[in-house]
């Protein structure tokens, strides 16, 4: 029982301590990084090329 507790505790401690490294090395969404722009052409009805993701056609109000 004690051994199981210790193993679980060690795993939890290691996971928490190493979490910043995992976050830093996780493959990031290239579009989300440093303000990358979506090169997808705008839908018909408005909006300029280079508008950021999520904007509605015709621009955000």
């Amino acid at each position: 029982m004690t051994v199981v507790v210790m193993i679980l505790l060690a795993a939890a401690v290691a996971a928490w301590v190493l979490a910043p490294l995992r976050n830093a090395t996780a493959p990031a969404d290239p579009r989300a990084r440093s303000g990358a722009r979506d090169e997808t052409p705008p839908e018909t009805g408005g909006g300029a090329p280079g508008a950021t993701i999520g904007r509605t056609p015709g621009g955000e109000r």
Partner: peptide, 30 residues
């Protein structure tokens, strides 16, 4: 963890790698 914190702090100092330093700080708490 103390040995790890020494290594992570050392490696995180130059060039700056904030994630290593953040991990070393967590090691100090643990």
């Amino acid at each position: 963890l103390a040995v790890y914190a020494v290594a992570a702090a050392w490696l995180g100092a130059r060039p700056r790698r904030p994630e290593l330093v953040a991990s070393a700080v967590r090691a100090v708490s643990m």
